[in-house]
């Protein structure tokens, strides 16, 4: 039985230390190399459900403050893990550079991330190495670009009043 009040990093015996973010939520910054290992250790420590996985594009905040030793990159993959036993959440943040937007897939640890990773690929263009079905999920197959990237325009169409009289 897990100790009450221990952080997820302590429970899983990780070398990374977690920081407590806004409203007391535990955040763990991991490198891409340690990503799978950390997720696996957390799963073995009782964080058995991957509640959420999404991408973030920090194009406009490349110099954002991060804890010591973490290099800010353009993309972030944010994973929310949940322990049903000790009612605790932990959030992993993985920095993904623009030049090589590839992270290993969590599918083999958490099969429930299949749709979420496909969504992150579709909307951000971050590739998940080893994903069994690495295709677009929300946009049509032949769509160009990744719409949620900050350099992708919203695609706003100016409102046209069709019956308005034209210029003479």
């Amino acid at each position: 039985m897990a100790a009450v009040g221990a952080s997820a990093a302590e429970l899983a015996g990780l070398s990374e230390t977690s920081s407590i973010g806004a409203s007391g939520q535990e955040v763990l910054h991991v490198t891409r190399e340690r990503y799978l290992e950390v997720a696996g250790a957390l799963r073995d420590a009782g964080f058995e459900m991957c509640a959420d996985l999404c991408g973030v594009d920090y194009l406009r905040h490349l110099d954002r403050p991060l804890p010591e030793g973490v290099t800010p990159e353009r993309f972030e993959i944010v994973v929310n893990l949940l322990s049903l036993e000790i009612h605790q959440r932990v959030r992993l943040r993985v920095q993904v550079p623009d030049s090589d937007p590839v992270v290993p897939t969590l599918f083999n640890l958490y099969p429930g991330t299949e749709n979420m990773e496909r969504e992150a690929f579709d909307l951000y263009g971050v590739c998940f190495e080893g994903h069994p079905d690495h295709t677009r999920i929300l946009m049509p197959d032949d769509w160009e670009g990744h719409p949620l990237r900050k350099d992708y325009s919203v695609g706003r169409v100016p409102v046209q009043f069709k019956q308005a009289p034209g210029p003479r």
């Binding site: 946009m139 719409p147 992708y152 919203v154 706003r156 409102v159």
Partner: peptide, 13 residues
Amino acid sequence: STGGMFNNYAIVQ
């Protein structure tokens, strides 16, 4: 009718 409040890339206006 017009795309409504979703004036973006995904919705037919």
